[in-house]
């Protein structure tokens, strides 16, 4: 690393594992998990907080990974789509997205999964308008969103059953 780059040592848990790392202070959380931890499931789509591809969960809440500095995760509990996959937290959603083909290029998908999971945690029986509203901060440029809405609706039903 270059000599004149300010860094900070941070300690946190990422996907349940304790992580200690020396991080440039200007590195975004999503760049850090992607390029330093190799967790490339979170994507960088706009870097100005509009597209939602960079979503990660911090202390139980979904945030824009491009609008948080990695050093701000010091002491936090971070979960990416990889962790949510391993824990099975988004398994039903993933099944429904798969079956309904609710993704094409897949670039937006991890961010949408995390957002949908947060919705279903506090709204177990959302109607389609609520699903659309909850996902209105995530750009999908391939689908017409309808398959996504249907997949989330189906997942909500299965999780209630």
């Amino acid at each position: 690393m270059t000599v004149d780059e300010e860094t900070l040592t941070i300690t946190c848990t990422v996907n349940g594992e304790a992580v200690r790392d020396v991080v440039p202070v200007r590195r975004s959380l999503v760049d850090w998990v992607r390029h330093d931890l190799g967790l490339t499931g979170s994507h960088v789509g706009c870097e100005h907080g509009v597209c939602g591809a960079c979503h990660v969960q911090v202390d139980g809440r979904v945030v824009r990974g491009c609008l948080m500095l990695a050093v701000q995760a010091d002491g936090a509990r971070v979960e990416t789509v990889e962790g949510a996959t391993r824990s099975g937290r988004v398994a039903v959603l993933q099944d429904c997205f798969f079956e309904r083909a609710a993704l094409q290029c897949g670039f937006c998908t991890p961010g949408i999964l995390l957002q949908a999971a947060e919705l279903l945690e506090h709204t177990p029986a959302p109607d389609r308008a609520e699903i659309r509203a909850a996902l209105s901060g995530n750009i999908c440029r391939c689908t017409g969103y309808q398959a996504i809405v249907e997949a989330v609706e189906e997942a909500a039903g299965r999780l209630r059953a």
Binding site: G41, E82, F98
Partner: peptide, 17 residues
């Protein structure tokens, strides 16, 4: 369904970056 979307759904896509 597309078999390969399982990989994309798990965050295991392989995009250039």
């Amino acid at each position: 369904p597309r078999a390969e979307t399982r990989r994309l759904l798990a965050g295991r896509g392989r995009y250039v970056d």
